[in-house]
């Protein structure tokens, strides 16, 4: 009888429902996405030292004051632009206060945009005779080489590597690279970036510079400078490093960020022009010469970069004839 009970108990136990594994809820990827085109830079671009040494900031000397609007010399690049009816300028639409799209009006504005309009004004007598093409940092040199644009006015640093492929005007602004980080992050400058993630745009000289600082940060590249601010705000990078002009614009959009540390590079901005258009380089330099002396440069600087440096003077032009 007892044996029967045992057998029955075993049978019942065998038939009882077996506890299965408990189900779990698995979430998909968490956190904000990254800006389209963001990527870690594994192999830092060549150091500036590796580029051929030259005196890139010395541009072609103007042949006197620029000709009157509407009176361009026959056969010149300017005459061709005049015949087309508009200047085609490569600018930025994402970099406050250099070249950006004003969200309220949808129009392009900024220091670089105003400088480009001055060139259009010199050719046509009308600053609105201009077509803007938005270029990312890495698209500037190809756009000039393909002649998609007449001129690039887009925080473009004059350096020897680029000077081999395109021509530059005289320097129209002297910027310098710094570091932007969240307040209280403990980042104090380029020396404290070791092991940190730092953002810069693809194809910019800033990326090359920051990838080669001694503290060896991890560099993340994105298409536009505002993408860097997005990544900083989303906690995907610890700092942004580029020219003080651009960083000031980013800091103006987020009071929880601040520029830290010294200028650790010199970034002379020049207007990029197709290498063959030497007459246009001289013309642009003549226009810049006038902007420096007649106070236009200072007016434009005060409008956009006054907060950065109240007493800034236009950089003196260097020529190599």
């Amino acid at each position: 009888m007892r044996r029967l009970v045992v057998v029955l108990a075993l049978l019942v136990a065998a038939c009882a429902p077996v506890p299965g594994p408990t189900s779990d809820i698995t979430a998909g990827p968490t956190g904000a996405p990254r800006p389209a085109g963001a990527a870690e830079v594994s192999a830092p671009p060549s150091t500036p030292a590796a580029a051929p040494s030259c005196d890139a900031t010395a541009s072609l000397r103007p042949t006197g004051p620029p000709p009157e609007p509407g009176d361009m010399p026959d056969g010149s690049t300017m005459a061709k632009i005049a015949a087309r009816g508009r200047l085609i300028a490569g600018v930025d639409q994402n970099t406050y206060p250099m070249g950006f799209r004003n969200p309220a009006t949808g129009t392009l504005e900024g220091f670089d945009v105003d400088m480009a309009r001055e060139i259009a004004k010199a050719i046509f007598g009308d600053p609105t005779r201009i077509q803007f093409k938005v270029l990312t940092s890495d698209a500037r040199v190809p756009a000039l080489q393909n002649r998609d644009v007449d001129v690039v006015v887009r925080t473009m640093t004059v350096n020897c590597e680029r000077a081999e492929k395109v021509a530059f005007s005289s320097v129209y602004y002297q910027a310098g690279q710094r570091v932007l980080a969240s307040r209280g992050s403990g980042i104090t400058g380029p020396d404290s970036l070791g092991g940190k993630r730092v953002c810069a745009t693809k194809g910019s000289s800033s990326l090359t510079n920051v990838a080669n600082v001694a503290s060896k940060p991890t560099v993340v590249s994105v298409p536009n400078w505002t993408d860097c601010l997005v990544m900083l705000q989303q906690g995907q990078v610890d700092a942004v490093s580029t020219d003080d002009t651009i960083l000031a614009g980013l800091a103006a959009q987020d009071p929880y960020t601040e520029m830290v540390g010294p200028k650790f590079t010199q970034e002379p901005y020049g207007m990029g022009i197709p290498k063959a258009d030497e007459d246009f380089v001289r013309f642009v330099n003549a226009v810049l010469e006038r902007l420096r002396t007649d106070g236009t440069w200072t007016t434009i600087h005060q409008r956009w970069l006054g907060s950065l440096d109240q007493a800034a003077q236009p950089p003196a032009a260097k020529y190599r004839d």
Binding site: A36, P103, D254
Partner: peptide, 28 residues
């Protein structure tokens, strides 16, 4: 939708970074 609202808030404040949030949203 969160990114779009962030973009919208920045646009309202006149910050060009709003366009970057819009691009990120569109990329997503």
């Amino acid at each position: 939708t969160g990114l779009i609202e962030t973009a919208r808030t920045h646009n309202r404040q006149g910050n060009p970074v709003g366009a970057a949030y819009l691009r990120e949203a569109s990329g997503l």
